[in-house]
Write a protein that binds this DNA or RNA. Structure first.
Length: 259
DNA sequence: TTCGGAATGA
DNA sequence: TCATTCCGAA
């Protein structure tokens, strides 16, 4: 076992090749570098959405809140992730560190008080990853071209009802604002509808809402504590801190570190 | 259990 | 840029 940080061996990761795992939710281009700047491999949130969309209920499943998911078997999830990345020594501690880097980017939030429970911020993913959604003015969202796979991913994997019941993987559909050719789906358009009093909108409705208004219902949702919107959410969030981002964004960014 | 700094790799 | 790895702290 590698006992030092300098000992790292390059293992060619088993990138997704088989249709059984990739074609279900994501088109091939989703994994190309052009759609994932800075990374030539599948990203962790891709992977999580993929598992969630496949109904990989053993290791991870959707939680009760909209966008919330629960890691049922942390070590198994880590093992799966490690297999995907060719990192045999992956464990939940390391995986969760990667998840925590998503906090700064507002891709993910921790659901406090619930073990192994996190929540996707789909609105942020949509806003910054959809090329045809105009970014908010006077912000620096755009120094890199973000992957537009996100909408497809979110749309395909999102629980349509948002309830606690596990969702079968929905038919893949891709949202028009991110695609050259819209592929509307009747189910996507109508969906079964919310089940509870605070039932979430179907993903497409959310996306269209975002597209029309430039913001998402999630941004103002009471339960969503990342309510400081409008910052350069992806661009400046470095691993080492968010001070640069706060400084540059000026008035409208208020990230207090931990929430 | 969760968090985030730091060093490092690709 | 996105992790991976390690680790100390809460």
């Amino acid at each position: 076992m590698c006992s030092t940080r300098t000992c790292s061996r390059r293992v060619r990761p088993p990138e997704m090749k088989d249709a059984s795992s990739s074609a279900v939710l994501f088109p091939d281009w989703a994994y190309k570098p052009a759609w994932s700047p800075g990374s030539r491999q599948v990203q962790l949130w891709h992977f999580l959405l993929e598992l969630l969309g496949r109904g990989e209920g053993g290791a991870i499943s959707w939680g009760g809140e909209w966008g919330e998911f629960v890691i049922r078997d942390p070590e198994r999830l880590a093992r799966l992730w490690g297999e995907r990345k060719g990192k045999p020594h992956m464990n939940y501690d390391k995986l969760s560190r990667a998840l925590r880097y998503y906090y700064n980017k507002r891709i993910l939030h921790k659901t406090k008080g619930k073990r192994f429970t996190y929540r996707f911020n789909f609105s942020k993913l949509i806003l910054v990853n959809c090329p045809r959604v105009p970014p908010p003015p006077s912000h620096q969202l755009v120094q890199s071209r973000p992957p537009s796979v996100l909408l497809a991913a979110a749309a395909a994997a999102l629980p349509v009802c948002g309830g606690a019941a596990p969702q079968p993987a929905p038919r893949p559909f891709l949202l028009p604002c991110c695609l050259p050719k819209p592929v509307p789906s009747p189910r996507a358009l109508h969906g079964p509808g919310p089940r509870g009093p605070s039932g979430p909108p179907p993903p497409l409705a959310l996306a269209l809402h975002v597209r029309a208004n430039g913001r998402s219902p999630l941004d103002s949702a009471a339960g969503w504590d990342a309510n400081r919107v409008g910052g350069s959410l992806f661009g400046g969030a470095k691993q080492t801190g968010i001070q640069v981002e706060s400084r540059r964004a000026g008035s409208d960014v208020q990230m207090g570190g931990r929430v």
